[in-house]
Amino acid sequence: MKGHVRERSPGNWAIVIDLYDEDGKRRRKWHTFHTTSKRRAEEECARLITLMTSGNYVEPSKQTVAEYLDEWLDFVKPSVSPKTHERYSEICRKTIVPQIGDVILSKLKTDKIDAAFSKMLTSGRRNGKGGLSPRTVHHARRVLIKALGQAVTWERLTKNPAQATTPPKVERKKMLAYDAEQTALLLEAFRPTRSFIPVLLAVMCGLRRGEVLALRWRHVELGDNRRSLSVEESAEQTKEGVRYKEPKSGKARTVSLSSTVVAELKAHRARQAEEQLRLGLRPDGDSFVVAQADGSPIQPQSLTHEWVRLLGKTTLPRIRFHDLRHTHASQMLAAGVHPKVASERLGHSTIGITLDLYSHVMPGMQADAAEQVDAAIRSAVKAKP
């Protein structure tokens, strides 16, 4: 195998590589290379010969990044959840394609991707008014790495050019949560509304929004000997509607209930049964704990909208519904609950996630622990004869 270069016009070179079949018949591969230096053209020729010799050569294709991403999205659709696929599609088509969609896939390089990320940060909004957040660009980078990794597997690329890109610096958002006094005010403000039970389950049990809306009465035990609920499903809203899937951690968990929560759920179940019986409905174990008046499930987005509307009528700080879960976690850890117990109650896959998310609560706990150890040692010293 050998090759040579030929200048077609100033700055445009043809790289010609001679290949020979098993029967000795010659055929040629032509590549176009743009440079003002003959030496660089010769170096590119040598690189291509090396790739062909080692078996790492990828046949050039005119497929663009946009065309490839459409193909990849179709490929991954059966293997990811509908919500994840929606998110992938949105990132690819609204964030990545406008920047590098017209680039030939085989010619996509790391520097071009880095330049695209920089542009996203400064002027990436579709309305032309400013840039995207570092977190959004970070998500775009992760999706592109995943997509181009498949291109390497399919031998469309020799290596993943997104892997070596520089990730944007993402500052961790300050976690918002209510203290005990604010939590009491919250519960009183929401008590007259249909959103009281969802708020109660989030702030007193640490349930996620989807877990609250997927909870059925057969998952709840309100007896004297056993007072708990089992988180077995989560409601996820997609463009095609609401689907019920396994919890985020991938496994069910049991959450013990306090006497206050038990009393509120018993009263709620009685009211709900009376309400549905008036409509000619007979509630059973499959009935949703949080439901419309006719027993039909509530959509996650509807709960969020109602949360924002009702919270706006109070004087409490504006936080997300998901921050009620953070409120429960913060108050647990501040009260001295062991992080392992908190982790199991919240449904985290590892205790490390709990410690990482709620490290801001730990300094006070460590100070209390230090004082307790100090007091124990002083007592022991004084007790010595």
Rank of each mutant, 00 (worst) to 15 (best):
A116H: 03
A116V: 02
S118N: 05
K119A: 12
K119S: 15
M120H: 03
L121E: 00
T122E: 14
R125P: 06
R125D: 08
R125K: 09
R126A: 15
N127I: 12
G128R: 06
G128I: 08
G128Y: 09
K129W: 13
K129Y: 14
L132E: 11
P134R: 00
P134Q: 00
R135T: 15
T136M: 07
T136A: 08
V137L: 01
H138A: 10
H138K: 13
A140L: 03
R141A: 00
V143P: 10
V143C: 10
L144A: 07
L144V: 11
I145P: 04
I145A: 07
I145C: 11
K146N: 12
K146D: 14
A147K: 05
G149K: 08
G149I: 08
Q150D: 14
Q150E: 13
Q150W: 07
E155P: 06
E155H: 10
R156M: 14
K159P: 11
K159H: 15
N160C: 07
P161D: 08
A162Q: 04
A162D: 06
Q163F: 02
Q163A: 06
T165M: 05
T165Q: 03
T166N: 00
P168D: 02
K169I: 09
E171Y: 15
K173D: 04
K173Q: 06
K174A: 10
L176Y: 05
A177M: 14
D179I: 04
D179M: 04
A180N: 15
A180D: 15
A180I: 15
E181Y: 11
Q182I: 00
L185V: 07
L186T: 01
L186Q: 01
L187F: 08
E188K: 05
E188A: 03
A189C: 03
F190D: 09
R191S: 08
P192M: 13
P192R: 10
T193Y: 11
S195F: 12
S195P: 06
F196G: 09
P198K: 05
V199F: 11
L200T: 14
L200D: 10
L200Q: 11
L201F: 06
